[in-house]
């Protein structure tokens, strides 16, 4: 067993994929914390689905499957979708969840129509495009990981730089406004970072599972701490552990798809946290309640 593990850890492909997945976990853990606290968990779902038409259009117009170009397409349509959701919410009585559902499904439908259109083109080989729907971590290359590292460094650097502003905005944006911090500006920056984080993960875990990467590490981390700074660090750590763990399991078991395994790993961490986290966890609260009941009983018994 240990021998197999050493072989795997020395394997170059494994190192690349594990590094990429870990990086993805870190990025989505950090920015997901803010998305979850802003109650925008499903923004990830919306943006990742909505990226599809942008990806296909970028491919159709340039004919390239270069990650950077496809990502720029995804960025454009993902950001557009987030903007539409805000626009619908602001200008009508449609609830934000309905607006998300509408934009998500229409953009995805448009993407599919474009995808099938590109399939009909004579020279199109859109294998690279399918990656964006299901994600294929195992096909990650050095260039992809390099891109992730750079984007990740920029994203996390921005979060560190604007930590105070993001905290203030996420917690109490109206108060921030009275201090002279324009909410619209902070909102635009933060949303942009979250959209970037989502898109960088698309080719690893795909459209459907990206929202899990955004939400789940943050939810798990929240159970262990009452400080935002620790929550973000823990979420990044959990994300990275799930990334490496998922990659490891999928390379040990043949036919095991990497993306879904990463998601199951992070979900397992979240379930464990919800049950067993000290103080907040379900178990801790049950024990607390039992102790309280005992105390109460003793008190009543003592009086009578």
């Amino acid at each position: 067993m240990i021998e197999t593990l050493t072989v795997i850890f020395q394997d170059y492909t494994f190192q690349i994929v594990a590094l990429g997945s870990a990086m993805l976990g870190v990025i989505s853990g950090v920015l997901g914390s803010f998305a979850v606290l802003r109650k925008q968990s499903l923004l990830g779902d919306c943006v990742s689905h909505s990226a599809l038409p942008g990806v296909v259009l970028a491919f159709l117009s340039t004919g390239e499957k270069n990650s950077v170009i496809l990502l720029l397409g995804a960025l454009a349509s993902g950001f557009l979708a987030a903007g539409f959701v805000t626009l619908i919410g602001r200008n009508s009585k449609v609830k934000s969840d309905a607006a998300q559902g509408i934009i998500l499904s229409v953009f995805f439908g448009l993407g599919m129509a474009l995808l099938t259109f590109s399939q009909n083109l004579p020279n199109a080989n859109q294998a690279g495009l399918k990656r964006f729907i299901y994600g294929q971590a195992s096909t990650m290359r050095r260039g992809d990981v390099f891109l992730m590292l750079i984007v990740g460094a920029v994203l996390i650097g921005t979060v560190v730089l604007l930590w105070k502003e993001f905290l203030l905005f996420t917690f109490d944006s109206a108060y921030g406004e009275t201090l002279g911090f324009r909410s619209a500006r902070i909102n635009a920056i933060l949303t942009f970072l979250i959209v970037c984080a989502i898109l960088i993960g698309l080719q690893t875990v795909g459209v459907v599972l990206m929202s899990a990467m955004l939400i789940t590490p943050a939810v798990a981390a929240r159970q262990w701490t009452d400080r935002l700074s620790w929550m973000v660090v823990l979420a990044a750590l959990f994300g990275a552990v799930a990334g490496v763990g998922g990659t490891l399991v999928s390379s040990l078991v043949p036919e095991m798809p990497t993306g879904p395994v990463i998601v199951v790993c992070i979900s397992a961490i979240a379930i464990f946290s919800v049950f067993f986290a000290p103080r907040r966890g379900i178990l801790a609260r049950l024990i607390e309640r039992a102790r309280f009941r005992k105390l109460l009983k003793a008190e009543i018994g003592g009086e009578s």
């Binding site: 606290l37 917690f171 109206a174 935002l228 929550m231």
Partner: peptide, 8 residues
């Protein structure tokens, strides 16, 4: 007017 469960 704030989310009291916020980690602060």
């Amino acid at each position: 007017s704030v989310d009291w469960d916020f980690p602060v």
